[in-house]
């Protein structure tokens, strides 16, 4: 006699919500399909968890994909030690609440050599504390597949990337020679040392992410919602002024205003926007009339056209 789901030990009884609209439903189905396919085909997958909105959606979809089972792989957070304080608090709370295996990795070179986003410039800093750190962590874990929350609509080189993105043993991406990827039949065959980055959110746009967060009631780091916060203006960006490591330069002063973030990363490199959108409805409404893209606020993407591709070829997500 088979037991029904209710009779097995399921911890969080699912809440009943109105059905998703067909567009979001199709995106959700596709993402779940990818999660299951990777989990089945690879020996040792891991999910990159960056604590942002895309990661939050990714995690939600992973939980859905494997329900009523547990998420069958660990989450990896590459901690540069320069993340917003609220991000770290949020990460630890979520890991505990959802009973997840969380792996946190920091590149010790940062501490040893005193590499900070202030002293070394965003390009070098990102290279060491994000790309190099990521590669160290992937090698240490021996992972053969890594899920990421990247979306094709984020940036022009991302728009070119496959859902299964093949990487050489030294984590390099060769955009000129990607494997064909037909229908939803993914080729997961690799040799020892090679790996695949898998992107379940490839076909989602920023608006889709927000509408899904709303429809599914997904918790987010509060920095995405507008509030009165202290900030400093630097290089045309509004930098959150709460971390004691932020030293004011001559002529700078801490201001206060209603601000929020469209993307989250390292606080010294992530610009806020002026906004009064303090809840999901308002954030979505604001987004639908936004005249600049979300990556505008990120110092590392502004360096030059093609900088993202360069970083990706070297192993960045």
């Amino acid at each position: 006699m088979p037991l029904s789901v209710q009779e097995t030990e399921i911890k969080n009884p699912p809440v009943s919500r109105p059905p998703l609209d067909p567009h979001l439903k199709a995106l959700e189905n596709e993402a779940i399909h990818i999660f299951r396919e990777v989990a089945a085909e690879f020996d040792n997958p891991v999910m990159l968890y960056s604590i942002g909105k895309d990661s939050s959606v990714l995690l939600h979809l992973a939980r859905k994909a494997f329900f009523p089972g547990r998420v069958p792989f660990p989450l990896l957070h590459v901690d540069t030690t320069w993340k917003f304080k609220e991000m770290i608090e949020f990460r630890d709370r979520i890991a505990e609440e959802y009973d997840l295996d969380l792996v946190v990795h920091t590149n010790t070179r940062g501490k040893e050599e005193g590499i900070t986003p202030f002293t070394h410039g965003s390009a070098f800093y990102t290279d060491v504390m994000k790309t190099e750190a990521l590669k160290q962590a992937l090698d240490a874990g021996g992972y053969d597949a890594a899920f990421g929350g990247a979306r094709r609509d984020e940036e022009a080189s991302r728009a070119k990337e496959r859902i299964y993105s093949f990487r050489t043993p030294d984590h390099k991406w060769d955009p000129r020679n990607q494997r064909p990827e037909l229908w939803n039949v993914y080729n997961g065959m690799i040799r020892k040392g090679e790996s695949v980055r898998a992107f379940p959110l490839s076909n989602w746009t920023e608006v889709d992410i927000w509408r899904y967060i709303q429809a599914e009631d997904i918790p987010l780091v509060p920095l995405y919602y507008a509030a009165e916060r202290p900030y400093v203006e630097r290089d045309g960006m509004m930098i959150l002024a709460e971390d004691p490591r932020l030293e004011l330069l001559p002529g700078e002063e801490v201001k206060h205003g209603s601000i929020r973030f469209r993307t989250l990363g390292c606080f010294p490199l992530t610009g806020a926007i002026r906004s009064t959108a303090s809840n999901l409805d308002e954030v979505i409404a604001e987004l639908e009339i936004a005249t600049v893209s979300e990556r505008q606020g990120r110092a590392i993407d502004r360096d030059q056209s093609g900088s993202m591709e360069k970083k990706k070829r070297e192993g960045y997500f």
């Binding site: 088979p2 299951r36 494997f66 009523p68």
Partner: peptide, 11 residues
């Protein structure tokens, strides 16, 4: 795609 067996009673 895969078989899920979170416990003895569910497959």
């Amino acid at each position: 795609q895969r078989v899920v067996r979170p416990g003895e009673s569910f497959r």
